[in-house]
Structures are given as structure tokens and as C-alpha cells.
Design a protein around this nucleic acid. Sequence first.
DNA 1: CAGTGGTCTAGACCACGGT
DNA 2: CCGTGGTCTAGACCACTGT
Lengths: 236, 236
Amino acid sequence: MPSDRPSGAFGWQHARDEALRRIRAREWPPGALIPNEAELATEWGCARATVNRALRDLAEAGLLERRRKGGTRVVMTPLRKATLAIPVIRQEVEARGAAHGYALIARALGTAPAGVCRALALAPETRLLRVRALHLSDGAPHVYEDRWINPVAVPAILDIDLAQVDANSWLVQNVAFTRGDLALGAVAADAAIADALACAPGSAVFTMARITWTGEHAITQVTQHYAPGYRLTTTF
Amino acid sequence: MPSDRPSGAFGWQHARDEALRRIRAREWPPGALIPNEAELATEWGCARATVNRALRDLAEAGLLERRRKGGTRVVMTPLRKATLAIPVIRQEVEARGAAHGYALIARALGTAPAGVCRALALAPETRLLRVRALHLSDGAPHVYEDRWINPVAVPAILDIDLAQVDANSWLVQNVAFTRGDLALGAVAADAAIADALACAPGSAVFTMARITWTGEHAITQVTQHYAPGYRLTTTF
DNA sequence: CAGTGGTCTAGACCACGGT
DNA sequence: CCGTGGTCTAGACCACTGT
């Protein structure tokens, strides 16, 4: 006869919650070795696979450390992780119910500075496409982006009218990448940034820099400068 | 007779990689409905659970969308997610091989501003402990933090000598929290920040603001101001 | 060497949600 | 209604690693 819980079993989420409770209640204090999967499965009346799923989940969250033969330990210092969505500007703006606007500022094919070539693991003096553009939210400057694109990796980009389509959206939809590097920071607005964002030179500007790769081949490097006051938020 | 691959089977990582290949090769183009788990299991010669694990993994990564009865679709715009570790300053500094220093700047119990009370979902005029402190990396100013702690949620904090132990480390090790809000941004250094970080007033400063909760009970709110030039990095 | 987690399997039942 | 993913089970074999 099934219990009041429709899906009778002691599910993996129950197991996870119970483990979480014991960690928080210090029944399993930081650094402690917890019972092995088989024991917990017996205690909780479920299959070992269910315990495995629960503990693996907590390990991925950074709360447990698991090693074969070594068993499972409560992490000494519960280092938290936050996942943040990397916004495609257009969608981010439209998701807020605002109108997305876009303006191409400059587009030029030329030799890239040494710093950019190094960051993209390309030979010095490589010819790259540089694109500077402004994204608007309900008509107000929102993000100024300064981008370098490797035409060897993305030849089709040379034929795109970047005054009509923003590189951000186009690349996301047309190029598959395998990996990316991300750096967040703050800079004082220089003349170009201040001009684009219509803010005072020297204003504090939040920046997100990304490099995307396919295998070991760099596709593009972009630095996005957000209008003063912007905050990137998430939960953890 | 086992094959050349020690763990004979077509593992879930193989399945995930093959699915990933098809997505990237546009064999499964954006928006397309892919075969159901049973079909793929047959095709790949593995159990449905293996396919499930693989596709669930890709769904968590944001590449697939799965719905009961609706099947599994390739996401139209592969929105990427980056996971960033929320650093405990002391550990972050020491992990870089630098010496961590700490100095308490001010500690005071008093009524909090309306904005802080609202952010922490507390009644106006609640009495909170405010702690301002500086973290050093090899003797140089690294992070200036301005923190409000709810003594109702953490009574023990009142007895801690915050000149000796930094609130960041103490809280992480002694208080279990269930949830947090995170906001990243940039501000111009005001007098207090500039003084603490030994930089020019108006310098662009990268900030990380956090609020941590146990259930619906706010524990602490902290804004950390990083010395100019700091970049928070990760990969995705 | 032996204990522990990692994974696979075949089968089963169920919840959700399009049709 | 009924197809699809979500999950559980019992058992099995294996990889890794501490002792």
C-alpha cells in the first residue's frame, strides 16, 4: 500500500535534503567523514544509486568532497558558487520589457595590437576585424562594446552588414564555440566610452570581457562596458 | 570478452559528447526536436538511464530544453552560464601565494539606514552591527568591505573580537546559510573607499555586494570594494 | 589488497502535459 | 489519453586510492 506520498520512495531530493540538514545542524561537522553510500541507503531505505545522486549533487554544489576509497567528507570551508548567465544583450534588454536599439560605431579590418594577439593566442600582427558598437535600452545608452573578431575562424562575418545585425547576436546564433574565458572588472570611462555611453569621462564603468574559443582556435574577444549604475545580479 | 575500452560500455560522457557533436555540427539544429531517450539508447547501444544522464547534463548546461511529453529540443539561443566561485578573501589571497593581512576600521552597533533594512527585509530602524574592514594582500590594500550584520540572527557575533578575526572568515565557518543574493558592479571611490584602498578619490572600483539568508531571515549584507585593477575571472 | 565511489543495466512505475 | 522524461531499484562490474 503506497504511503500518502504519491511517488512512494525516498527520493534523491529527500536524501539530499536530509544530508543537507545534517551538515547544517553540524551532525556532520566540517571535515567529518560521513557514512558510506551503502550504509546511508540502508538507513534511508532506498537504493544506493539514490544516495549517490543526492551526494553527488551536494558535491557539485561544493558542500561535500568525495574520493574513492577515501569516502565522503564535509568540506571544511563551504566555498559557495554562483552561476551567472552570460547575457546576450539584445535578449537581456527585451526580457526586461525594454526596446533594444543598436548602433554600429566603427568597423575596420586591420592589424591587432600585440596585447589582443597574445590574448587570442595568435601570431603578432594578425589581421582582425574590429567592431565597436552601442546597445540601447529604450533609447538610452546601455552597453558599449569593443570587439575583435578572427576572420580566419569566422570568414562569414566579413559579409555581414554589422550596421543591421549586431555581432553579439549573430555570433551566438551562427558560431559554435567550445569554451570561453570571462573577466569582470571596473574601469574609468575614457573619451570613447564616455562619448558612447553619454556619461562623464572618468565615470566608473562595469566591464565584462570575454574570449571565446573553438578548440584552441580563438573566435572573438569582446569587452563590454555597461552604462554607469548597471549591476549584474544573481543568486547562490 | 571486453573490448579495448576497459569499462566496456558506451558511457554517459560518450553519449553527452556525441549529442554535443550533433548540436555543434547542426545535425540537430537550434530549435529542433531530437529523438527520444529510448531511440537514442537503442541507437547508441546503451541503457536509457545513460542517455538520460547525458541529456540532463546538457540541459543543465543550457544547451537543451526537456519537457515531458514535449520531448527534448535544442535551445534556440544557446545562452551560456558561467559559474563563479564566491571568494573568501583570506583564502583567495593565500591561494595566490600572497600573505593575507586584515585591519578592522570601525565596528559599531546602531540603527541601520532605511535602505539596508529594506534590503534585508527587516523593520525600519532595526539595530545592526556595522563593520568596516580592510583586507591586505602582501601588505597592499586589496579589499575594503562595509558590512551590516543582524545580531538577532547571529548573536554570537557580538562577542567576537573582530580586530583579530575577520567577519568574512568567521561567518563562513560558523553560520549556515541557505541562500544568497549577489550583485556585481562598479562605483567611483568615495572618500572612505579611497582612503582605505589608498587610491585616488573617484577611481573606478569593482564591487561585489552580497546578502545571505537562512530561510527568510537575513544574516548579513556586505559590499566589498576591490582595489583598482582587480578582475574577477572564470571560464565557461 | 580491499573499501569506496562511479557507472551501467534492465525493468518498472509515475508525473506531467500535449493532443 | 498516452507519449515522454523523471526517477527508483537491485544487482553488477570497475576504477581509484589509502593502507
